[in-house]
Computed example of a mutant assay.
Amino acid sequence: MDAPEIHHHPSDELLLSYAAVGLPIGARLVVATHLELCAACRQRVAALRALGGVLLDEQPPAPLREDALARALERIARIEPQPPVPTLGERAPRQPSAPPPLPLGAVWPRALADCSATRWRWLGPGMRWSRVNVPDAPEANVFLLRIGAGKYLPRHTHRGTELTQILYGHFHDGRALFGPGDFDLADADVHHQPVVQDGGECICLASVDGRLAFDGFIARWLGGLVGM
């Protein structure tokens, strides 16, 4: 399968936070999914990591306290012993992935290999969603949206940050056209209405920090039910 032509990417600031492991887990999963599809951003992250290493090397050495070694050994001694790691033949099973059925050509992201997801649930006419469950991070608000051709999300803005990675199909939200591989960040400065283009449905992976602020009462009610 040919790589998608990608027009919208995470900012350098966001990629730097990703490279420094400074993103919340939900946002990190969405950015990691983009990196699977985008060679240019993978190269950018590698360059940012290399730059961070150079800057660290150029920093003057920090003096240590005279008892630094003794304090480190004391902390090591207080660490609880961990059970042995099983060998390959007896490795403990990973949490099973359970992606909901996807259309031909849509691929479950490798970044979500340890996650599970619910079945597709009704959200509105021509709209379904699936909750992505992140191991050891129940607070992560990550989900899949599947919207039919010609359908649209209600107009909304954001009380926080929404990261969206397009996995399949196309939508236009009044700002730009987004297609497979494209990435979008929306915050309180963005007031939009994603409309799926004719010719096929659209599937997106999203992480929301905060809530979407829908214009209409019914949309706000439905958004509250699913945690948007």
Rank of each mutant, 00 (worst) to 15 (best):
P83T: 02
A98D: 15
V54G: 01
G53R: 03
P86Q: 06
L69M: 08
A98C: 14
G52K: 00
G52S: 04
I79S: 10
S97P: 07
L48Y: 00
L88R: 10
Q82L: 13
E80A: 14
G52F: 01
G89T: 08
A92E: 15
P96S: 11
A68L: 08
R75M: 09
E80T: 13
L69H: 05
A70F: 07
A62H: 09
L51Y: 00
R78Q: 12
G53V: 04
T87C: 14
R49N: 01
A62N: 08
Q43L: 15
Q59K: 05
L55H: 03
Q82K: 09
R65G: 12
E90L: 14
P81F: 01
P84C: 07
A46D: 08
P93N: 03
A70P: 01
L55S: 00
L48P: 02
P63Y: 00
L56W: 01
I79L: 15
A70G: 02
A92F: 12
P96A: 14
A77L: 06
Q95I: 05
L51V: 01
V54W: 00
A92R: 13
P96V: 06
R94H: 06
E66W: 08
R71C: 10
L48I: 08
I76D: 14
L64Y: 04
L88A: 15
P61N: 07
V54M: 02
E80D: 12
A47I: 05
L88E: 10
P63V: 01
A72Y: 08
E58I: 02
G52T: 06
E90N: 12
P84G: 11
G89E: 10
D57G: 06
A77P: 01
L55A: 07
A92S: 14
L69R: 09
E90S: 12
Q82W: 03
I79E: 12
Q59E: 08
V85I: 13
R71P: 05
D57V: 03
I79N: 06
D67C: 01
L55W: 03
L55Y: 02
A50I: 07
R71F: 10
E66I: 08
L56A: 12
L56K: 04
E80Y: 07
V85R: 10
E66M: 09
Q95G: 14
Q95L: 11
L51M: 11
P61G: 05
L73N: 11
T87A: 15
P93Q: 06
A68N: 07
L64S: 01
E90Q: 13
R91Q: 12
A98E: 14
A92I: 12
